[in-house]
């Protein structure tokens, strides 16, 4: 083993002795998002079975798992984009399944889809304005806040979003979802399609959004990095809960590592 690999190993193995990852899928006390026994899918095809998932206020939660495990389906179901079958999805104490996306946004949830997540023919500023469509007037102070968060967008505000680089588009997409200052932000694979050197910048930005008080529920292919950064992680397999624990604990678990994180 070379020195480099040894260093990497030590980073990836925060818990020196591997422990068994937890399987308690719910949190004690108040969760802003509370999913219980959720069955959902597309048309007749059921993807999720009895999924439980909680996100506490201000918490940073990641869903990882193999391809086809239903990670994105959980997120889309929260947003009312799949076929709901059974169970409950409560947000801040209100049942939200069956609401139109427009109403879910009003409840305080923002969603950044994985691909095609900007309007290419609209300028950066117009993309952000569309994020606040349900308000009567454009919230200029919120646009300023997003420009402070992503300064490059202030420079490019009149440019069409379709002409931006992948990383900048991802900023526009996040900025749009933050326009209404949501309590919970859903991120579907934010690092997908980004050049490797931009990935950690992207995760840093997500950290800062979370530090400012917004709870995050994220699906991510880049599972190691995601688990290292998040508060808690869910491992989903075949549309069912498998493990749930603190991110570091999942990273340290031998079974999780072997089965889902590539050793």
């Amino acid at each position: 083993m070379s020195a480099d690999e040894a260093v990497e190993e030590s980073v990836e193995e925060p818990a020196a002795e591997a422990t068994k990852a937890g399987t308690a899928h719910t949190v004690e006390g108040d969760a802003i998002l509370r999913i219980r026994d959720l069955d959902a899918g597309y048309g007749d095809l059921q993807i999720l079975t009895d999924v439980d998932l909680d996100v506490a206020d201000g918490e940073y939660v990641t869903i990882v798992g193999p391809n086809g495990a239903g990670k994105s389906t959980v997120m889309k179901t929260v947003f009312g984009l799949t076929t709901y079958m059974d169970g409950s999805v409560e947000f801040e104490g209100n049942e939200i399944h069956g609401l139109a996306p427009e109403q879910i946004i009003r409840e305080g949830i923002g969603f950044v889809p994985q691909t095609d997540n900007v309007f290419p023919g609209l300028s950066v500023r117009e993309n952000l304005e569309m994020g606040a469509y349900i308000l009567d007037s454009v919230p200029e102070d919120q646009i300023e806040e997003i420009f402070d968060r992503f300064p490059i967008l202030r420079e490019r505000q009149e440019q069409k979003a379709g002409t931006l680089s992948g990383g900048q588009r991802q900023m526009v997409a996040m900025g749009r979802a933050l326009m209404l200052d949501p309590d919970l932000l859903l991120l579907d694979e934010p690092s997908a399609g980004l050049a490797p050197d931009l990935v950690s910048d992207m995760f840093d930005r997500i950290d800062r959004i979370n530090d400012a008080g917004t709870a995050i529920l994220m699906v991510e292919q880049n599972a190691k990095e995601a688990l290292r950064r998040c508060d808690r992680g869910y491992v989903l397999v075949n549309g069912e809960n498998r493990y749930t624990d603190h991110g570091e604990a999942l990273l340290g678990d031998e079974d999780v590592r072997k089965d889902f994180l590539g050793g």
């Binding site: 309007f119 023919g121 569309m130 994020g131 749009r176």
Partner: peptide
């Protein structure tokens, strides 16, 4: 705002939906 929303829908209907248009 309406015109921008029209252009947004012409660009990407699914995204317009999750944006709350």
């Amino acid at each position: 705002k309406l015109g921008t929303a029209m252009r947004a829908m012409a660009d990407n209907k699914d995204l317009a939906l999750v944006t709350g248009i």
